[in-house]
Structures are given as C-alpha cells and as structure tokens.
Simulated assay, not measured.
Amino acid sequence: MRAIPTGRQLRFGTELRKLRESAGLSATQAGQLVGAQQSQISNMEAGRVGVSAERVRALACHYKCADRALTEALATMTSQRHRGWWEEYRDLLPAALLDLAEVEHHAAHLRVSVTVHIPGLLQTIDHARELFRQVIPELSPPDIEHRVSYRIKRQAVLFRDPPTPYEVVVHEAALRMQFGGPAMARAQLHHMLDMSERDHVTLRVLPFTAGSFPGSGQSIFYSNGPVPQLDTVHLDQSHGPVFLDAEAQLHMYRRLLDRMEARALPPAKSRDVIHQIAREL
C-alpha cells in the first residue's frame, strides 16, 4: 500500500506545482518536456512519488526558474525522503504533530514567540506531562506518556551537532504560570535559564511593562528553510497544528516576530527577569 505523503513531501510537490504554474504550463505540457505522463507530473506534485534531483533540475530549467538557490533546495529535498524517528508515533499521534517534528528536524533556523505557554523545545518532562494532563478530551495515561516522549525527542534539534539556532520571545505571563505548583514552575524556569546559556539559543522576555504588541493573541512558530520560499509558519490551535506557507503569510509573520523581538528585553536582562521570578516562587 502506498504510504501517505508527509507534510514535507506535500510541500515539495506544492513548490514544484508553483513553478509549473508560474511558467504557464499544464501538467500534460510539463510531462511532454521531460518525457513523462501527465499522471506522473500530478503524482510528483501531490508528493506521492519520489523524484530524482536531476528531474527536478530539468523541470526547473523548462519552467525557466532563474532562482538557482530554490532549485537546488528542492533538488536536495528529493534525497531527504526518508522518514525519521517520528514515524514510530505514526499510529499513536495525529499526523500534524509528526509533520511538526519533520519541519523542525529540517529547519535551518527556528524562531518562536509565546504568550502563555513555555515553548515545547524548552519544556521539562514534568512540565510537559502536566500540560498533557489538562488536555480536553482527557488523554489516557499511555497517551500522555506518548506525547511527553514525543515532545522531549523533538528537543534533539537543540543538542545535535551542529544544533539548530533557536530564537525565542516569551511573555512574562508564561513565566509566571505555575503549572504543577511552585516547585515544578521553579524547575522549569531554571531549565530555561540553563538552555539560554547555550550559544545557539537566544531567549528574550517580553515584560508586562512592554504593554500592547503585535501578535499578542497567539503563539507563533517559524521554521526557516534553506531558502525563504521554503519557510513554514506553525500556529498552535486548540484543534491541532496549522501550517502556513503562502508568501504573504510568511512575510507577515516575519514582521510580527521582528517587532516582538524589538519590544522584548535583551538576553542578559531577560535572564535577570527569569531569575527574579524563580526567586519569588
């Protein structure tokens, strides 16, 4: 049985289709240019079949794509069709969560802003477990542990060699949430402080005194691809993750993150705020 395409495979196909449509060609016409059937082009663009790097370059050439960086990024994606550690959760978690791990795994850079929750990649095991205990509808104990282990394994991107650069803006409100009680909250803050000392982790606090700011009503997760066209925005909704990749959406969320970072405290002062909140617990 043919495997269901992952989110990354679907994204590859979407970008290939965009190039074809920009060239004003039908799938039939594109197939004729490279000696393929219309159905083969359609399957490529649906992420259902693998494509060689050579064919990607040939299609890009016929599509008159002048962006060599984008062409090479798409060609590289053809050799990254293997499925990673997240596949062990395929029958245990929603597919969108697996797509999130895949996006993070391949990201060149990660940017996050959160208002109420601690970012998943900076959560302790106890903090994550407490969050999943509050999910509605309630999760069974095994399901809670599956989600906890999955969340912790996602954090590997911050510990591999080389690690993925990670920039976080966290609102003071999230730092003062005492999930699991004062002791657990204090341990979570200390963990964030430890992580913020790593060269590839930049943590900024948006204090209450900053007042209103753009994007205040949502958490934003922005994954930079090898080229800007392959960036992805992930919004955490109550019904599950939502992924955005339209050019206008990417531009808007980059601007939101830029403005939030500009309003936030610099890293050193941010650590001072976190230390102070931890002492108050």
Rank of each mutant, 00 (worst) to 15 (best):
P228R: 07
P228T: 10
H117G: 10
M260W: 08
N224D: 15
G217C: 03
S196P: 03
R83V: 15
M195G: 03
W86H: 02
A53Y: 05
P141S: 09
T28L: 11
D199G: 13
P165D: 11
V205D: 05
L206W: 13
A3H: 13
S216N: 15
L175P: 00
E87P: 02
A73V: 11
R90W: 06
L230G: 09
Y253D: 08
G215N: 04
D126S: 14
L235G: 02
A246P: 01
L19W: 11
R8C: 02
Y166K: 06
A3K: 12
E172T: 04
S39H: 03
A46F: 02
V49W: 05
E130R: 08
A174Q: 07
H146W: 07
F221H: 14
S149C: 08
V273F: 12
A248Q: 09
P137L: 02
A3Y: 12
H200E: 08
R151T: 10
T202D: 03
A278W: 10
A95F: 08
P165L: 07
A268S: 14
S79W: 12
R55D: 13
E138D: 09
V103L: 10
R2F: 11
A174W: 07
I41C: 08
S216F: 15
Y166C: 06
V273E: 14
A101W: 02
C61D: 15
V242M: 08
A264E: 08
Q237I: 07
M192I: 01
S113Y: 04
G7R: 04
G180R: 00
V34Y: 09
V233N: 10
D161C: 14
R57K: 13
P228Y: 09
V170L: 01
L59W: 14
D99V: 05
R90G: 04
